[in-house]
Design a protein around this nucleic acid. Structure first.
Lengths: 209, 209
DNA sequence: CCTACCGATCGGTAGG
DNA sequence: CCTACCGATCGGTAGG
């Protein structure tokens, strides 16, 4: 960012060229990919959305798949940072504490990077780019499953449900955020993380104290 | 079904025509739609998968969208039956009991109709068929949210988390099943429903008794 | 005339 | 950043 251009996704009003940069085109592309699906979105759709012609898009971007790749990298980089930050061996922290922290950090990433994470969670493996993203996702899932298994072994979590199943259901709940969360909604990230950890770890039911 | 044909999706071996029926083609189509995405699946892909030519498909099916429509109807009919069966006014049942039952029934439907429910959960609203399916889904979500609100009002569920949020997270966890469940896996439906209700209602953490 | 298909190609549109 | 296009493939249908 060396220019004084506005960083918002909307073109400047009035005279002159809209002046999109690569980041603004990527944001618009991700929004369309999520709304219509990647395959159902044509580069013509993207051009119309931006008020450009199709060839004009290719002035900023080399391919449709490059847009997908950059979006998936954004999500994966953020999620990897969240997981490694929370799962690193930190003196005096139990696996249970680290698990609660990785849930909280994951929620924060889902909220802050909702568009790209949404796209990531819908990847089917239809291309090399998608298969590479799925591989990075699997690495994250394995880390999370290992952390849950540690927390069970530690005696912090109930052992009546298989750890692998717990991990899938817990992060299934976390990931479901992307289906309905919108930044302009009433929920703030800290409150969401609290709600999820309360439901998952303490349960919904009021128990006779 | 008035013939003695096998009802499996595989064509007969040996001489003669494969003899697919509409149901077998639908099953194969749904499997492909889930594996590659609806838009990324061509009728040529489906034909290849079945060992037929593309025109042969159209002998049994009027359009690609009809296949989608029938698959979504299957999922929606089953989910509607599960929700109405569990939410109907039944003497002596609390909202909390009905909520636990609708979770259990939903899990059973997800497991028994995993392919069509998976497809339903990925619909984006790209066509009239998809918009109609989203409307039926919204009706179901509203019923579930109302049931959660009733259970909170009843005093059975903790009121520190907004009911609308509880509903989304609870069924977000339930729905996440479709992402990884496979019928040949180690989990049986009753065990899955138990695991989900235990996690959601009683919590993962071992509390000091 | 039926069911169950095939080889070839239609009019349009995709990404580039 | 536009006009003018390409190789290919899309969903769907013709005659036999």
């Amino acid at each position: 960012m060396t220019t004084t251009e506005p960083t918002g996704s909307a073109p400047r009003r009035g005279r002159g060229r809209p002046g999109y940069d690569q980041a603004a085109i990527l944001r618009a592309a991700v929004e369309l990919f999520n709304r219509k699906g990647y395959d159902a979105t044509s580069m013509g759709d993207l051009a119309k959305e931006l008020g450009l012609t199709k060839p004009a898009i290719y002035h900023h971007v080399t391919s449709k798949e490059q847009l997908l790749s950059q979006a998936l990298d954004d999500a994966l980089d953020e999620l990897t940072a969240a997981v490694t930050a929370a799962t690193g061996d930190r003196a005096g922290q139990t696996a249970y504490e680290r698990l609660r922290e990785v849930v909280r950090r994951s929620v924060e990433v889902l909220v802050a990077h909702q568009p790209t994470v949404t796209l990531l969670l819908r990847v089917r493996g239809n291309s090399g780019v998608e298969l590479a993203a799925l591989e990075r996702r699997r690495w994250l899932d394995d880390r999370l499953a290992a952390l849950v298994a540690d927390a069970v072994a530690e005696g912090a979590l109930r052992d009546t449900v298989p750890p692998a199943l717990v991990s899938r259901l817990l992060f299934g709940m976390v990931n479901s955020l992307v289906e309905w969360y919108s930044a302009d909604g009433a929920y703030d990230p800290a409150m969401l993380a609290d709600a999820i950890t309360v439901i998952a770890f303490d349960g919904l039911a009021k128990h006779a104290a």
